[in-house]
Design a protein around this nucleic acid. Structure first.
Lengths: 262, 262
DNA sequence: TAAATAGTGTCTATAAGACATTATCTC
DNA sequence: GAGATAATGTCTTATAGACACTATTTA
């Protein structure tokens, strides 16, 4: 080896670099998928068909495809989340393309030993699924079953790890992820229009209000909520659609119908 | 092999699992460290001493230690961020322990090919560094230099990738990370007390107002801002400290001094 | 007409912006 | 006293909660 060190350009550095391999974590995306059924906020859980936590309810998710990690670096994180969403629900691409699903990154959970298999760092995403897709969801390949759980009635019965109580727990640290997801949606519903991702393509004032009430876990005064609703109309977020919709079975004044503005 | 499949318990599954190895990404933490110097919001950048992007300014950061990824799963993400903060600034543990630094996870950036070396997924953290630590920061081992850049005067001169203009760019996708960090702090300063992480241990009304003005990039009416300030006092977030502080060089009425409540 | 749901009007309390005024220091 | 900065007072407007009221449908 000569004393003269050749100026190592980035090309040759790259070739060198790829020879060294340090231990790396696995990276997954986990999905907190919310939707509305009747007047309830629901979250989609899968029953795990394989260890670890076999047989327990968990958030859907899967590994991010990173190709060979060098020449082919694989898929983006948001693409991985969208792919998992399609796979775990069995919803076809065309259906998802025609029914806009709100998808946003939530937080990254990477505590050591959160997965016994190996170091797993999980990037969690929140998905808001329009309610017309709920009946179409089927168990994907990895899961023994999928089910929509009521946040109000059912999720509260799951215990958190460390709570010395009866009842089932969610797999891994998924209760923590779910808690943060609810907090995110609750926070953002006040100053964004994400609620619109949880109503059908056309909806009434009352239907939008039900979304707010389900998310916030509280009731909204009809008159005051209409101020918020009217602001959305004048701001051009929503607009009136043709026709009216007759409420419940026992009569009542038909309501105007609205839709999103594209 | 017999027809009878032994019921595979989680223990044996684990042993099996570890034999298989799929390609994995590298995971890093990147830090957006903000502080105040005079009346300016500053961000700490390092000049990269090694390829890729050698010689360009970048956010400090480094790889997450994942141990061997199996029996030893390494450090938590927040611990990695805290460790990098200490390493890149040269600040001793004791100093950091005595000067509370606000550290929160921002977002995870994982676009394919964002790093030419290999697939790198970066968990970005925002750190708010109290101003008394600014003079103590020295270049860490990995960096050729560190410098606090004024968000108002200097960062605006860096171009974003794709902008066909003169001027330097930040390394990787760090401009995107920085943009999101500013947006996060700007948003949270309104409804949290994070501004308190950017003032000295004792501070005046005017000093806290300067933090708000630097973060928001706007001026605040003194009288109206005092309402916010008074609310923090009655809410018990801050309290009056003994003594007064004489302002600028040319006289003026001395101001009351405040501190955080523990 | 009763029950049910949709939609309107109004009073009040709170918070925020604009701006005028008083107070206390140094030189 | 002049200049400088700190602290207070007040008027107006915007927004949110509480609640009373009117409107339109079915059975």
């Amino acid at each position: 080896m000569s004393d003269e060190v050749p100026s190592q350009d980035e090309q040759s550095f790259l070739a060198e670099y790829r020879k060294k391999v340090y231990p790396r974590p696995s990276v997954t995306v986990d999905l907190v998928m919310f939707s509305m059924v009747d007047t309830d906020l629901k979250v989609l859980l899968i029953r795990r068909g394989a260890p670890p936590w076999k047989g327990t309810w968990a958030l859907p998710g899967g590994f991010v495809d990173v190709g060979d990690a060098f020449e082919n670096q694989g898929e983006d994180l948001a693409d991985a989340a969208a792919r998992e969403l399609a796979e775990e629900t069995g919803l076809a691409k065309e259906i998802l393309a025609n029914n806009r699903v709100h998808l946003e990154q939530l937080y990254t959970f990477g505590r050591a030993y959160r997965d016994p298999r190996t170091r797993v760092i999980s990037v969690a995403y929140v998905a808001l699924v329009p309610p017309q897709l709920v009946p179409l969801v089927r168990a994907g390949s990895d899961a023994a079953a999928v089910r929509w759980f009521s946040m109000r009635e059912e999720i509260s019965h799951f215990v958190r790890p460390g709570e010395n109580a009866d009842g089932d727990a969610l797999a891994f640290d998924h209760h923590e992820i779910l808690d943060m997801a609810v907090a995110r949606v609750r926070g953002k519903i006040d100053y964004t229009s994400i609620a619109c991702a949880l109503v059908p393509p056309t909806f009434t004032f009352a239907e939008l209000r039900e979304v707010y009430e389900a998310v916030k876990g509280d009731t909204f005064d009809s008159s005051n909520f209409r101020r918020k609703f009217d602001r959305m109309v004048v701001d051009g977020i929503i607009e009136q659609a043709p026709g009216k919709r007759t409420p419940g079975t026992l009569g009542g004044r038909p309501a105007f119908v609205y839709r999103f503005r594209p």
